[in-house]
Design a protein around this nucleic acid. Structure first.
Lengths: 229, 229
DNA sequence: GAAATAGTGTCTCTTAGACACTATTTC
DNA sequence: GAAATAGTGTCTAAGAGACACTATTTC
């Protein structure tokens, strides 16, 4: 039952780990792409990815890849799913574990010529599997946004409530009611106001807030049949 | 960059796929376990599992394993996550993809001596990784219950509303209000009543229902901060 | 002052949950 | 009739969204 000495029948190439790094920039979601480096690499953008190293956990490999692409740690890292490319014959047997990483946005780094943030709307065409990873990451972010503080991980440590609302509007795909949004936020005891204000062009300066969940309300959630597909 | 001919450095054993099959029985959730067969197998219960076969999709492998354990297809099959057992030295490098399968309950099959349904409360001790798979499957079922018809997949095609409510109460971990539960169900247009009734011991017979989602209400869902941990 | 953005008070409509019932069965 | 389960009508309190404001900035 063990792998043959030839190493062909019951073995397969080491796992590939790909990381979809999402951030918010200017009211939109952005994904980090990089040009493939090395000799035989074609000149196209792709997700940060690498092969798992010997003795390394999948989780640690994902963190290493994210760190290598960002220069720092993401604020959130979570496994998405495992795919195998059964479509393409040449890469038959390739198994990729996709991860979702969230990066505090707002800083708008340019990131150089071989690496950059691309708005999801105007993104270069990726390979079919990589496109699926990005789609899966969006789906996951939207599904988990009310179980995990996804919105807060996409923003820097201090933010305005309008910025927070904009992130949630992008994730939900629709406009939210301002007063209602703030009431719900206040009732959940998730943010604390700072004694700082930020002026952004015209208009009244907005107060800055920090994510600091305080009281853990016993979430007496009911069944939500209305969200079923 | 390709695997060496020796097949040791950049390769690893084929993927293992494990399937957590959940069902509802008597107001409780049950998981399907089987005794390991074959020569070197120790006499303990474990999840249905197997190695991915050459050229087989992970998804198809999971379906094959589920079918082998059940004798039929599960009503729901979904990838949970991919784990590697970094704790145990001998199995270093073992990568397991865990799947969640839902099985229509109510039939209460005994399933023989080397295979059976175990209530989650009084389940034999599993290995550490397999225990994690079961825990992850419960977590996933609970998290996705309002995005996917988890409750309906755990019940046979016809069921009473009390049975449905009991399933959701197990998933939520708390009692639900009967009138409120039925109102929400009716508003979502998810079930249709049949002209059949079932008598269960004492009490008024219950009308049977069938899962048949009709009108797709435009789910104008708002942000739910109250569910954040 | 105009335009733009931040932030709030009040009203209404929906809905979850409580309460109290009625209905139909077995014993 | 008692006990048990199914199923419903009504009230209340909470919350989401609409509307209409006030507040503070730049131009």
């Amino acid at each position: 039952m063990r792998a043959r000495q030839t190493g062909r029948l019951a073995t397969q190439p080491a796992l590939t780990i790909a990381v979809v790094l999402l951030s918010s920039a200017g009211g939109k979601l952005a994904v980090l792409l990089q040009r493939q480096t090395g000799a035989g690499a074609r000149d196209r953008w792709s997700l940060p990815r690498d092969i798992e190293r010997s003795g390394e956990t999948i989780e640690r490999a994902a963190r290493r890849i994210a760190k290598g692409a960002l220069g720092g740690d993401p604020s959130w890292l979570e496994q998405l799913a495992t795919f195998n490319n059964h479509r393409q014959k040449p890469t038959q047997g390739t198994v990729t574990v996709a991860y979702l990483g969230l990066v505090p946005g707002g800083a708008e780094r340019p990131m150089g010529s071989h690496r950059g943030w691309f708005s999801l709307a105007d993104m270069p065409t990726l390979t079919l599997p990589e496109g699926e990873f990005v789609a899966a990451s969006l789906k996951a972010a939207r599904e988990r946004m009310d179980h995990a503080p996804i919105g807060f991980r996409l923003l820097p440590t201090t933010f305005t409530l309008s910025e927070l609302q904009a992130v949630y509007e992008v994730l939900l795909g629709r406009k939210l009611h301002k007063a209602s949004f703030r009431r719900a936020l206040q009732a959940a005891w998730l943010v604390v106001p700072l004694e700082e204000w930020r002026t952004e062009g015209r208009g009244r300066p907005a107060q800055l807030y920090r994510y600091a969940p305080r009281r853990r309300r016993i979430s007496r959630r009911s069944v939500r049949f209305d969200r079923l597909v």
